[in-house]
Amino acid sequence: MKEFQDKLIELLYTNVQVEREEIFSINSDNYTPLHLKKDARIMFPGYFGENFNKGGTIVFGVNPGGGSDKRIQRHPSDNLLYPLLENFKQSKSNKIEIYQTINKEFPEILKSWNLWRIFEPTLQALDNNLKNIAYFNAIPYRTKQDKKPPVFAQRNSFNLLINPMLELIEPKLIICLGKKAGGIVDRFTENIDIITIPRTIGDSYISQEANEILENLRLIRVD
């Protein structure tokens, strides 16, 4: 497991060297949040739990939140996360140790996000926990007003970042949180089981459709 995880960290380190312009091309400014522009240039490469191994389940979001025009100051959790992400990008000999620090802090950071309101019941339906799964974004950079990235950016992200990870991980199951994420992952992946859990605005409640899918997940797990 350690050899696999070290390889994955090396790949994520390679990924964070891919600049925002390589994903959004010359149109990058059109999709950059109005505020916190420096953070928008920092990639969130993803998280994997301490027990995650080849063939494990991946949970996908669409892209990191925080691009709203109303966000003029960092979320408190960003004060911890984004300096770590920047250090990881700049690291060389100690990249594995820095990434392990990110992974150690991320579960509590995740629990402070609205996303956790749908993430937690999804893990419960899978009878799983954060130690055993990986979490990535289909496009790992923030977008203006948190809008869905354009198709060309989706394609660039999968060609440059996501598909090499999928080739290394060989996941048996991908869970997408939200139909936007599900549509992107389904468009650019093949031969992997994909289940999409619909989200509501602000994840303020779990919809009937999402509850039905979660219940099916429980039944599959029991069977």
Rank of each mutant, 00 (worst) to 15 (best):
F4L: 05
K7R: 14
L8F: 01
L11S: 05
L11K: 11
L11W: 05
V18T: 11
E19Y: 10
E21A: 08
E21P: 00
I23R: 04
F24Y: 06
I26Y: 11
S28M: 08
H35K: 11
H35W: 14
L36S: 03
K37F: 01
K37T: 11
K38Q: 11
A40E: 08
F48A: 01
F52C: 01
N53T: 14
G55M: 03
G55R: 03
F60C: 10
S77D: 11
P83W: 04
K89C: 02
K92D: 15
I96C: 10
Y99H: 13
T101E: 12
I102M: 07
N103P: 04
K104S: 06
F106G: 03
S112V: 00
N114F: 11
L115P: 02
L115R: 04
I118M: 08
E120I: 09
D127T: 11
N132C: 09
Y135G: 00
N137L: 03
I139T: 14
I139G: 02
P150I: 04
Q154M: 09
E170K: 10
K179S: 14
K179C: 10
G182W: 02
I192L: 06
I195F: 08
S204K: 14
S204N: 12
S204Y: 11
Y205D: 11
I206H: 03
E209C: 01
N211C: 05
E212I: 00
